[in-house]
């Protein structure tokens, strides 16, 4: 079934179409949820909420973009609702310990997707969310500020700190491997 057929089936409340849509996108969306969530149980909750929203609001889908992008946006928004604003006020801890580390991109290239997920999961909430939004989803700092209710400058600094922390973590991992 292509996306159009899936949408029409979901509009008719056809269970087969709903299941097909689930099979097609749920695993990819679950990856997104895992990137934002603190643990797998929270990721499952986010995905469940998001998919229910998708089924309930599919009538509002305008074919201006792809269905996957629309679902992805719902998943991201749902994930963000799970994170309180306070996440961005507690992230100063221990940053002075992370020194400027000029890690080459090659170090990340050697890591598998699950290892990268593991690195992201080790980031504090605020860093993780901004890094996901800015580095992976491609939102601008202005958009992130509006989405999270924070200043653009806060978003920028959170991203910088997130990158520093990731590089330090990769460096540490490389040393352990060696």
């Amino acid at each position: 079934m292509n996306d159009q057929q899936l949408i029409e089936g979901c509009l008719r409340k056809d269970k087969r179409s709903e299941k097909a849509l689930f099979n097609k996108y749920s695993q990819r969306m679950y990856t997104i949820c895992r990137r934002y969530a603190r643990h797998d149980a929270e990721a499952e909750d986010i995905l469940q909420d998001a998919l229910i929203k998708v089924y309930d609001n599919i009538k509002n889908f305008r074919a201006e973009g792809s269905l996957e992008a629309w679902i992805r946006r719902i998943v991201v928004n749902t994930a963000l609702k799970m994170v309180s604003k306070s996440s961005f006020q507690k992230e100063q801890l221990g940053m002075e310990n992370y020194q400027e580390a000029a890690t080459e991109p090659r170090a990340f290239r050697n890591l598998s997707a699950e290892e990268l997920m593991g690195l992201i999961a080790r980031l504090p909430d605020g860093y993780r969310i901004v890094f996901n939004l800015a580095a992976i989803e491609g939102y601008t700092h202005k958009e992130i500020g509006a989405m999270l209710g924070i200043q653009e400058s806060t978003s920028r600094s959170q991203l910088t700190k997130a990158r520093k922390m990731l590089q330090s973590l990769v460096l540490k991992q490389e040393k352990i491997t060696l």
């Binding site: 299941k19 689930f22 749920s26 695993q27 990819r28 679950y30 990856t31 895992r34 990137r35 499952e44 995905l47 469940q48 991109p105 990340f108 290239r109 890591l111 598998s112 997707a113 990268l116 997920m117 800015a134 580095a135 992976i136 491609g138 990158r163 990731l166 590089q167």
Partner: peptide, 21 residues
């Protein structure tokens, strides 16, 4: 680095629990 993350995680699928549906 951002591009690497996008490539590796953008299309990555994670296995869901069996009873999730």
């Amino acid at each position: 680095i951002d591009r690497l993350f996008q490539e590796k995680l953008g299309s990555h699928d994670s296995a869901l629990p069996n009873d999730f549906w």
